[in-house]
């Protein structure tokens, strides 16, 4: 047990160093503007507006000058699943430097409720919890937008 824990710890510590190094590299090229957009509703119109906001911000500020992360949680998670027609746009936008973060907590809850695996569309990454991610980004100086 102790050895396993130790192994885990060492493994995680190594991972920690790698992740830290990665974060350092990101921090060095910090863009001028940082915006987090929250999607917490299953209303497709709002989901599309969120993505329009992201695209327009990129156009207005220049793709290299702005970091945009869309965080979807609660009923908003549907935006990142084939269930919502809005999800069709997600893979393309993800390739244009817009980060899509899916709430792991919501996903787990949905899976528990339906008994089925929730599949996310391409280009989406998972975070532990959407709300915690939004708090973290605000801490990092991201401006908060909720369409």
């Amino acid at each position: 047990m102790i050895i396993r824990t130790l192994k885990l710890t060492l493994g995680s510590a190594l991972m920690a160093l790698l992740v830290l190094a990665g974060q350092q590299a990101v921090a060095d090229s910090d863009p001028k503007h940082k915006i987090v957009i929250q999607v917490s509703t299953d209303d497709v119109r709002t989901q599309n507006i969120a993505m329009n906001n992201a695209v327009n911000l990129q156009k207005a500020l220049g793709q290299d000058n702005v970091a945009i992360e869309i965080v979807a949680y609660g009923p908003g998670l549907t935006m990142l699943t084939p269930k919502s027609p809005a999800s069709k746009r997600v893979p393309n936008l993800a390739m244009q430097d817009i980060t899509f973060s899916a709430c792991g907590n919501t996903k787990a809850k949905m899976e528990e409720k339906s008994g089925k695996k929730v599949v996310l569309v391409d280009g989406v990454r998972m975070v532990q919890a959407g709300v915690l991610r939004i708090m973290e980004l605000q801490e990092e100086g991201y401006a908060y937008v909720r369409p």
Partner: peptide
Amino acid sequence: LIAWNWNGK
């Protein structure tokens, strides 16, 4: 802390 940052997994 890292486990915290290290999303999802």
